[in-house]
């Protein structure tokens, strides 16, 4: 099923929580809404679910206008950050909730509940109450409950944000598996965590200040970010001010070979792992060294700008205060506007 937001604006009183958002998610596609808190990503999701009413614009499912339809009539699966399991119902009754609301026959409910609990690996917990489960288990049940009604659209609102790092990684893998199990599902995944967006999404919509600012396939967005905000929010890119002249781009007076100037783009974007130390680079001074297990992250000062550099842990690491030269390979550089 195709989900379509057509110029959707949402106001809460006087504050504008979402401004003119237009986005289409195709069947089988996963789109991540990525942005800091207060950027409007959750509001966009709630508008699709029908929990908030757009002040203007339309929401369409498979071309059909559902803007005026209550959430109960939309048939959309929703999973939220705080699980929102019904505390007085056992796991199996939580999963059966939507099926019973739809008055499915008893045998079908039992079958479907068993199938869903199997899908999320919670079969042996069917008779437990939510409070007897860990956070990760509760979120698995919440996913099973959302999928039990066979939705064509699944909305995930920061589903892993309340879990600790190890569980987050585990559940991320399960969500990837889930996409293979239900290939026609259209998924909108709201997150502020870029690694979740990179791992799951086909496309990423970057949101900021109630607006959708960039929308592109995940790899495109990562490799050639269209804006400075996206570059730094997605993958922590370094942004270096440049001067352009005569088909040359210079950083701190040093020519970067192979990079062509583009008018209006005044920042050079490069990922920390792409920067290398070596002869003939831009001169800088090391101001900090952090060991990260698999790598070191260096902070280097280059003409008043701090540049992060990831170095493999097995090589030589310069000390704080050392003078270094930063090589910026042209294939890893892209130019963005301020």
């Amino acid at each position: 099923m195709t989900v379509q937001l057509d110029d959707v604006t949402v106001h809460f009183g006087r504050t504008c929580a979402l401004e003119s958002c237009t986005l289409t998610v195709a069947a089988g596609e996963t789109v991540a809404l990525l942005g800091p808190s207060g950027s409007g990503k959750s509001t966009a999701l709630k508008a699709v679910a029908g929990f908030v009413r757009p002040s203007s614009g339309r929401i369409r499912l498979d071309g059909q206008d559902v803007t005026e339809l209550p959430p109960a009539k939309r048939g959309i699966g929703v999973v939220v950050q705080q699980y929102a399991l019904f505390p007085h119902l056992r796991v199996e009754d939580n999963v059966a909730f939507g099926l019973r609301a739809a008055r499915r026959p008893k045998g079908e409910v039992t079958r479907r509940v068993a199938e869903m609990l199997g899908l999320v690996g919670m079969t042996s917990y069917a008779r437990r109450f939510p409070r007897e489960l860990s956070g990760g288990q509760q979120q698995r049940v919440a996913i099973a409950r959302a999928l039990a009604i066979r939705p064509k659209v699944l909305l995930l609102d920061e589903p892993l944000a309340a879990l600790d790092a190890q569980l987050r990684a585990d559940l991320l893998i399960e969500l990837q598996n889930l996409r293979r199990e239900v290939p026609t599902l259209a998924i909108i995944y709201v997150t502020h965590d870029q690694s979740e967006a990179l791992a799951l999404a086909d496309r990423i919509a970057v949101m900021r200040d109630a607006r959708l600012i960039d929308l592109a396939p995940t790899t495109t967005l990562y490799q050639t970010p269209p804006s400075a905000f996206t570059a730094s929010f997605l993958g922590n890119a370094n942004l270096l001010p440049i001067k352009s002249s005569n088909n040359e781009v210079t950083v701190a007076g040093h020519v970067i070979p192979g990079v062509q100037p583009i008018s209006g783009k005044e920042l050079l974007c490069i990922r920390p792992h792409a920067v290398r130390l070596g002869a003939g680079g831009v001169p800088g001074r090391v101001t900090g060294v952090q060991w990260r297990g698999a790598s070191y992250q260096l902070t280097c000062e280059v003409a008043d700008v701090l540049v992060r550099v990831d170095l493999a842990a097995d090589g030589a690491v310069p000390a704080v205060g050392a003078d270094v030269q930063l090589v910026l390979p042209s294939e890893a550089c892209s130019l963005v506007s301020r």
Binding site: K46, A49, G50, F51, P70, P71, A72, K73, R74, G75, I76, G77, V78, V80, Q82, A84, F86, F97, G98, A101, A102, A142, R145, A146, I149
Partner: peptide, 11 residues
């Protein structure tokens, strides 16, 4: 969120 999710499940 509990009320919202219940509604989305068709209740």
């Amino acid at each position: 969120a509990q009320l919202d999710v219940a509604a989305s499940l068709g209740a």
